[in-house]
Nucleic acid binder design. Sequence first.
DNA 1: AACCCCAACAACCGCCGGTTC
DNA 2: CGAACCGGCGGTTGTTGGGGT
Length: 277
Amino acid sequence: MGRQPCCDKLGVKRGPWTAEEDRKLINFILTNGHCCWRAVPKLAGLLRCGKSCRLRWTNYLRPDLKRGLLTDAEEQVVIDLHAKLGNRWSKIAAKLPGRTDNEIKNHWNTHIKKKLIKMGIDPVTHEPLDRKTSSPATTSHSVVTADSTSNSDEATKQQQSPQSDVAVRDVLADSSSPTESSTNTISTGGSSSSSSSHDQDPLVKWLLEEDPPTGDEPWLNDFTGSVDVDEFSSIAAGPELPWDGATDWLLDYQDFGLGDSSLVDGYIINSSNGAKF
DNA sequence: AACCCCAACAACCGCCGGTTC
DNA sequence: CGAACCGGCGGTTGTTGGGGT
């Protein structure tokens, strides 16, 4: 199909976003919303492709984003969900309020994957690595593929219904973190980890729900749910910014007409639901 | 002090599925 | 019904900063 590229590459700026570009994008979205990403850069006065704007917004500028490393509890949730879902980062991210698929994907590739390998667990299958030695196809090669994402397509297909994440939990239980108590509850529903029982698995049920988490989920005990208004207010007022220094100017939200707290409130509430203004 | 290596993460790319016309 | 459009997803790459030599 002769598909039009998302943007003609001539005259489109690429690379890291400047504070000024961030300002323009946020200013535009907070006042107009994003009806059509393709139109956003033009209307916002940016020399960026719409896709790039969307990515920048969803991965970095959204006010309801948490910043910083994933907590132990979040990490455990990611591992559990990955064992069941594979590399469906957006699905995983949907269950971790304030986290993006990109962030989780990066964290998986840079932290969790290595941690699991160190523990002797195949990050793809969530099985102990030594268990695979009987299979020539996966012997020792599994570590290599785990480090490289080049075969990820195949790997992803293979891990769509991983059989077990029990091994992961067993090992992680040894490396006890203060958050294990809550994370272990995650496995209660998934203790029977055969794919056939996933339909009964509360975690899988929860995953299949379209609604955002209520915060009552037992496996979410150790981290907060969506950002509420008070939290955002305190964030905006305090030094604990979700943004790095490059976007400190956001504190001055009055500058682009956000002095009206109702607007901010409305936005936050909506955005935490994934709604678009 | 200079260089190299590596980890971390932001951003880009290509593809896919859903929707519209 | 099919082409075109659009948003979103997952994989990959590029950049940057920190640590080691």
